[in-house]
């Protein structure tokens, strides 16, 4: 085995691209869960975003419109979940799983005639001088705009949750919907907005997958990314900054195991493929055993149904 053939710089660059879809989806779900709603349909919303973004980009020739349309469609399909759980008080776990099933099927139907087509190119930005710097140039200045957007979004969500009144209201609703309702906040309306935001982020993550990362449309192409996004939210104990760590760690282990194989490491690929999931469990346990912090961050009303009886 020749480990020196693995370059840390290229590893970091490729892990950032590999992690961005799950980071975007996880950020959306983080807001949803902070509002006290558990939407297990991330996978379904992602794949709808992937197919709709792809169709829009191919039709219009603009990847930017593709991202926009992917986000809109992700939000649109999340409204099924929102209406069922918020107005009709359906169970969130079952509805979320149903959304995944529905989304996967609908995406295949929509994308039927879009297989085997190349989408318009979405190129990396290249800043003269800066992007050509050794090491730093590629890691800091050598990405496509969506990666910078995902980082900016992380910061914006952190700012929103901790520094704005809107964030305070959102957290209050997630903490105790009855108390928030008594204070005069429109619990259901806030949650509808949060769910739509989550759907848009998942759709954006899906569109990144089909427009940049793969870039192709193929049935079932999300291949479980939505579930990973869900894991990362809890892993991050509902903090946006930690979501980045979680997503990059997961993407990093995935990319690293393929690199180790290419370098000739003779361990069964099956065992190597387990490592991202085992790593997630271990970090989860370490974080969770710090009971005080965990309980401070977990939204107390998560997954509970709200009905305004008065």
């Amino acid at each position: 085995m020749d480990l020196s053939s693995i370059s840390p710089v290229t590893l970091i660059v490729s892990l950032m691209a590999a992690s961005t879809p799950i980071l975007l989806a996880a950020l959306g779900e983080l807001i949803v869960e902070k509002s006290g709603v558990l939407n297990l349909g991330v996978e379904g919303m992602m794949i709808i975003g992937a197919v709709c973004g792809f169709i829009a980009a191919v039709t219009t020739g603009s990847p930017w419109l593709g991202f926009l349309f992917g986000a809109i469609c992700g939000a649109a399909v999340s409204m099924i979940f929102a209406v069922l759980t918020q107005y009709l008080m359906a169970n969130q776990v079952a509805t979320g799983l149903g959304l995944t099933m529905f989304g996967l099927g609908l995406a295949s139907l929509l994308g039927h005639s879009y297989t085997g087509i190349n989408p318009p190119l979405f190129s990396q930005i290249h800043i003269p001088v800066l992007s050509d710097l050794p090491v730093v140039g590629r890691i800091v200045f050598g990405h496509d705009p969506m990666i910078y957007f995902s980082l900016a979004l992380t910061f914006a969500i952190w700012y929103f949750l901790t520094r704005t009144r809107g964030g305070l209201v959102l957290r209050a609703v997630g903490e105790s919907h009855d108390a928030a309702h008594a204070l005069g906040y429109k619990v259901i309306r806030i949650r509808m907005l949060a769910i739509a935001f989550g759907g848009a982020c998942a759709g954006l993550g899906g569109a990144y997958l089909s427009l940049v990362r793969v870039p192709q449309w193929a049935e079932g192409m999300t291949a479980g990314a939505g579930w990973i996004a869900l894991a990362i939210v809890v892993f991050a104990s509902w903090k946006p900054g930690r979501a980045i760590i979680g997503a990059y760690l997961f993407g990093g282990v995935t990319v690293l195991q393929l690199n180790l194989q290419a370098a000739g490491l003779a361990i069964s690929p099956a065992y190597l493929s387990m490592t991202p999931y085992l790593a997630t469990i271990i970090v989860l346990v370490i974080m969770a055993s710090d009971k005080k912090r965990q309980s401070l961050n977990a939204p107390a009303s998560l997954g509970k149904t709200f009905f305004a009886s008065t």
Binding site: L88, F102, L104, G105, L106, S108, L109
Partner: peptide, 22 residues
């Protein structure tokens, strides 16, 4: 009928069952 349409159909059934439960 494509398999995907059946999947969508199952999804609908689920949504309706959950929805009318109220």
């Amino acid at each position: 009928i494509p398999a995907a349409a059946i999947q969508v159909f199952q999804g609908m059934l689920l949504f309706f069952l959950l929805g009318v439960d109220i």
